[in-house]
């Protein structure tokens, strides 16, 4: 995946644009710039989760062993997802303090990202508890799939449970955006860069897993 090398141009560009080019939002002021990092991070955490889930399905379905190390890939993706999730929660909390006056108030989106984090934590606990078990890959992948199927249910439930303070869904194009064209461009560029960052990191980690696996195979053959 040579294309992910683009990250070295895109990331500095989006940081530059976020701080220098985009105008501050009307009411929120300069603090609104966090949006260019918070939204892409949240998007990345969901992307990583979905990727892990799909790879897990592939892993269980792949009886002939056409792909290698799919469970490791799911694990790597979840690792990046976990970091993205934590960063999204922190940046979100800072933003919440700036605009709503408190770090945490169980807004639906805060709730859903917390649940995502709980799932990641559960997954990693299970993963570490299964350390030397031969069926570790299968059990962990099953858990991810199982979790992925219950997550959409939250989307129906959470809005009914809590009133929202969040700005209108930003990714949803039907709703009215409070961003002007310039801000929207920066946000899109930033979303793109963070997606790239995700794939770049994933690619790196997968390569490490491959090398590690190859090394082990060689080592044990002898």
């Amino acid at each position: 995946m040579k294309a992910t090398k683009l990250i070295f141009i895109m990331m500095p560009l989006s940081i530059f644009l976020a701080f220098m080019w985009a105008p501050p939002a009307e009411i929120l002021g300069e603090s609104s710039r966090i949006i260019y990092f918070h939204v892409p991070l949240a998007w990345g955490s969901v992307l990583a989760f979905v990727y892990s889930g799909i790879v897990s399905i592939l892993f269980l379905a792949d009886k002939k062993g056409k792909y290698t190390l799919l469970d490791e890939r799911a694990y790597n993706s979840a690792g990046i997802g976990m970091v993205f999730t934590i960063l999204a929660i922190i940046s979100g909390a800072i933003w919440a303090k700036m605009s709503w006056g408190s770090y945490w108030n169980w807004d639906p989106r805060q709730t859903s990202i917390t649940i995502l984090m709980l799932i990641y934590i559960a997954y990693f606990s299970l993963h570490s508890a299964l350390k030397d078990n031969e069926s570790k890959g299968r059990i962990c992948c099953s858990y991810l799939i199982f979790a992925m199927i219950t997550v959409p249910l939250f989307i129906f439930i959470i809005p009914r449970m809590y009133p929202s303070l969040h700005p209108d869904p930003i990714i949803n194009p039907e709703r009215k955006l409070k961003l002007n064209a310039q801000m929207r461009t920066v946000l899109m560029i930033s979303l793109f860069s963070f997606t790239l960052l995700y794939f770049y990191l994933l690619n790196l980690m997968n390569r490490i897993s491959f090398i590690d696996n190859k090394y082990k195979e060689k080592y044990y053959e002898e």
């Binding site: 649940i115 709980l118 799932i119 934590i121 559960a122 997954y123 606990s125 299970l126 508890a129 299964l130 078990n133 069926s135 059990i139 099953s142 858990y143 199982f146 979790a147 219950t150 249910l153 939250f154 439930i157």
Partner: peptide, 26 residues
């Protein structure tokens, strides 16, 4: 099914609570 997963992990009691909580929240 979560119980089955945990049992393979050596049945560590609190692990079960950890992995079932996010699923049972709704």
């Amino acid at each position: 099914i979560l119980g089955a997963m945990v049992s393979k992990a050596g049945g560590k009691g609190s692990l079960f609570t950890v992995i079932s909580f996010p699923i049972l929240l709704p």
